[in-house]
Amino acid sequence: MKTFVPLSPKKCVLAFGCACALAPIAHGVTLLHYWDFEGGYNDKAGASNGTAGAEVSTITGQDGNTGAFFPSAVTGGGAFDSTGYVDIAPATNVSGAFSMSYWVQLPADTSTDGRGIFDFSGDGGDGPQSLFIQSGGNAGNLAFRVDGSGTSNAVAFVTVPEDNSWFHIAANFDPSGNLAVYLNGTPSASVLASGVADATWDVDQYLGAFNVNTLATRGLNGGLDDVAIFSGLLTESEISGLADRSLTPPDLVPEPSTGLLVGLSGLALLLRRRK
């Protein structure tokens, strides 16, 4: 009968490292919501499924699959109605730090209206929103904004391309630090965020437009793809992976059961060899 000798920590790493390295290691980040527009507008990570209006259409997305195209205005004028955007069930109110990742495509045109990319702050409520501004003091900039209660907010501006190409935006919001925005994986803007630590998420939420109850021209007039919301902050390497398409949002948060199964399988194999 052979005597069982426990493996040293170094040997354990060698025994299990190859198998466990197949999945990323989570670091307190949770994928809460993910709209990839593949086969519809459902939330592939949570329960905030979307309903698309009649004027929302499908296009070729950033990865060659399906993306969504949103108009700049709806027929008939007046308030921007639900035919021009994706109305989603309320997303989880993230308490504390969160990250967002999404792809945008903007046409080369001469529009001067603010274009809504997404709005989780309702019509002037609290929460994050993103829009493209073609006129005023921040002309030609994409804005990522987080609104808190009252008048508190943090807004970061990034100059983005207008040539029908897809570009990637990621944002990290740390209520005790900064709101940082990345363009195609590169840090591009950062502003102090500590003044909006009390931000909540409005119940009126939509993709492809913003402030829809006030003006007729609040639609994106462009494409949107792979919108993801995480609790916790993404690392710069994860953001780079999302931007260069070597990672997708689900890749960043492996299911615990998967890692456990791989580890147990490796342990069973090791024990059989030592008998």
Rank of each mutant, 00 (worst) to 15 (best):
G77M: 08
N42F: 00
G46P: 00
A26W: 05
V196Q: 12
C18A: 14
A199C: 08
R218A: 15
P6H: 00
R245P: 03
I169F: 00
P128G: 06
G127N: 10
F144R: 12
L31Y: 00
N184D: 15
T75I: 12
P175M: 05
E55A: 15
G50C: 09
S257C: 02
A228S: 13
S231F: 09
L14C: 08
S8W: 01
P187C: 04
V86A: 08
D244F: 01
L260E: 07
V160Q: 04
A21M: 08
E236F: 08
G67A: 14
G219F: 05
T200C: 03
T3W: 03
V191Y: 01
T92F: 04
A228W: 07
V262G: 03
G17Q: 00
G124N: 09
A193H: 02
F210R: 13
I229Q: 11
D126T: 15
N184P: 04
V5H: 01
N141R: 13
F210D: 11
I25C: 12
A156T: 05
D226P: 10
N42V: 02
L271D: 05
L131P: 06
S130G: 12
V227S: 09
S231Y: 03
H33D: 02
K11A: 11
L242T: 11
A15P: 07
M1G: 12
A228L: 07
V191S: 02
T151I: 09
F157I: 08
G122Y: 12
L270C: 05
L260W: 02
R272C: 14
V56M: 01
S130A: 14
S99W: 00
P9W: 00
A23R: 14
L224Y: 13
A15H: 04
D81R: 05
A243R: 03
L22M: 11
I88W: 03
S149H: 07
G61D: 02
E55K: 10
Y102L: 05
V29L: 09
W103K: 02
K10F: 08
A243P: 06
S82V: 11
A108F: 11
V74H: 09
S190F: 06
G61W: 04
L22S: 14
P175N: 03
V196A: 12
N42W: 04
D113S: 15
L271N: 10
K11M: 08
G136E: 04
R272V: 14
L215S: 15
F120S: 03
I88D: 10
H27E: 07
S121K: 13
S95E: 15
G67S: 07
L220I: 08
F144E: 15
